[in-house]
């Protein structure tokens, strides 16, 4: 039993965590990148928690970070650094939602984080997802080595 649990947390769980954390950010980043940048700027302005002058720059940089770091986490490239960065980023998003006061809105208000055609998550739901992702990011950043990663493959093939 102990061995099975250890195996799960040593092998399956890190892989599942990478797919969830990286996959969510990859999807979120790709949707934003393929849409007009004005759409994401509008979402950021709507939070009222960021200085208006920073919004155009944040709207330009964040989708690329989500897409690239998300892929790094899924593929296991620079896994400790990329999962730590995404974990911190997820906690920052949760903080922005909390600071904007949107957690108190009724359930009919959705965040639009995945576009109008994507899943319609309410602010408490996306806040919860960000907290989970933040924890996963910090969890993954603790491992020196993780199974089925580009990191491992690159270090093996270099030997």
């Amino acid at each position: 039993m102990k061995t099975a649990v250890r195996k799960f947390f040593g092998f399956s769980f890190p892989i599942l965590a990478r797919i969830l954390l990286g996959g969510v950010f990859m999807a979120s980043g790709l949707i934003k990148l393929l849409e007009p940048a004005a759409n994401f700027r509008a979402v950021l302005y709507g939070y009222d928690a960021l200085p208006a002058a920073w919004v155009p720059m944040i709207a330009l940089v964040v989708p690329w970070l989500e897409w690239i770091l998300g892929f790094f986490v899924v593929s296991g490239y620079a896994l400790r650094a990329s999962s730590f960065l995404l974990g911190c980023f997820a906690f920052s998003l949760a903080a922005v939602i909390a600071l904007s006061g949107k957690l108190g809105l009724d359930a009919s208000q959705t965040c639009g984080c995945f576009g109008e055609s994507g899943p319609q998550l309410t602010y408490p739901q996306i806040f919860f997802l960000d907290i989970v992702n933040g924890c996963l990011g910090l969890f993954l950043s603790r491992f020196r080595s993780s199974p089925l990663t580009l990191d491992r493959w690159l270090s093996c093939s270099a030997e």
Binding site: P36, A38, R41, A42, G46
Partner: peptide
Amino acid sequence: TFFINGERVAGHIE
């Protein structure tokens, strides 16, 4: 979302 002579402007703040 607005289109001012075709130019996209999203949101009331923008």
